[in-house]
């Protein structure tokens, strides 16, 4: 997704530094896009579900009730029950916690590591840049899910390791984004003047260059949460992510495969939950990109 960066490169630096103006503009243009607002509403809805899961969910995640196994959706079980007689609605609500947490924290992880590497590569250039950029290239040469599977295979299957794997595979995306941004910013006059008055590298990097490179990262980050959720679900589906009895959505899908024909609700609802959150983050991310991209301003 690094093709986003050239578009965003055009943001005038001053706009972002004075907080209120440009951000308010961005919010106004974000609001104009109905699709983006819908996306945001979906995201907020799932975030609320996740935060208040224990209060909302009618049952616990592992309340097995074998007498009612594979019960179709009804007044008692809105989304039906799975093959252990567990309430699917409750599991999906709790599952939102897992998926959003994986999405959010893995992206934070990749943003932090990616930013540091990207800034260092972009600012110092030369051999530092060559080494870091080549490492990114090598990582990007692998299909990302394959790399994630390999990492989990080494670390052992668990939710935490799945999170680490997803964070790792997304590092080069953010690293390259920041690096290209830094490359253009460091040629700007205010950086030259900062150097001229003898400011230290660290201070230039973190108080001038970093804040000015953040806009594309926010956009990319929102979109990356969506892919991270999908990747976590994929790993869960393959049995490499969350372990039983955790209500991870991908794992719920995998566990219900045998009942695709006889009890379709066991697959439909977790599938819908994945689809809606990913769609929500994607729509919101698109809206953010349009809002933060000056070229789109009319």
């Amino acid at each position: 997704m690094s093709e986003l960066s050239p578009k965003i490169d055009g943001i005038a630096e001053g706009q972002i530094e004075k907080e209120s103006g440009p951000w308010r503009d961005a919010w106004r243009s974000f609001r104009k896009s109905k699709v983006a607002v819908v996306g945001m509403v979906v995201v907020v809805f799932f975030v609320l579900l996740a935060v208040f899961a224990p209060f909302i969910a009618p049952q616990g995640i592992n309340d097995q009730n074998m007498a009612d196994r594979l019960h179709p959706p009804s007044a008692e079980y809105w989304f039906g029950t799975d093959d252990f007689g567990r309430d699917i609605l409750s599991r999906i609500i709790h599952g939102a916690r897992i998926s959003l947490a994986v999405g959010f924290f893995s992206v934070i992880g990749s943003v932090v590591v990616g930013s540091i590497l990207g800034i260092v590569a972009g600012y110092y250039g030369r051999w530092v840049d060559i080494i870091i950029s080549r490492i990114f290239d090598i990582m990007l040469a692998f299909p990302s899910i394959l790399l994630a599977i390999a990492i989990v295979a080494v670390l052992g299957p668990s939710l935490q390791n799945a999170l680490i794997a997803i964070a790792t595979i997304n590092v080069p995306n953010f690293g390259r984004l920041i690096r290209s941004k830094v490359l253009s910013i460091k040629e700007d006059e205010y950086i030259t003047s900062a150097k001229a008055i003898g400011m230290k590298d660290v201070r230039i990097l973190f108080s001038h260059i970093l804040p000015n490179s953040m806009a594309p990262v926010i956009v990319q980050g929102t979109l990356a949460i969506a892919t991270a959720i999908l990747e976590a679900a994929a790993l869960g589906f393959l049995g490499l992510g969350a372990q039983a009895p955790s209500p991870e959505w991908g794992k719920m899908l995998a566990d219900s495969r045998d009942y695709l024909q006889s009890a379709p609700w066991t697959m439909i609802f977790p599938g819908l939950a994945i689809m809606l959150t990913v769609l929500g983050f994607n729509l919101m991310g698109d809206g953010l990109r349009d809002a933060l991209d000056p070229k789109m301003k009319s």
Binding site: N62, Q64, M66, D83, F84, Q243, A244, P245, D255
Partner: peptide
């Protein structure tokens, strides 16, 4: 694995924590 999940729950009921 499915049967193991039932056993896991049965064991949890008597205080044994089983990791599958």
């Amino acid at each position: 694995t499915k049967v193991a999940e039932v056993i896991q729950k049965n064991l949890a009921d008597v205080g044994i924590k089983a990791k599958i």
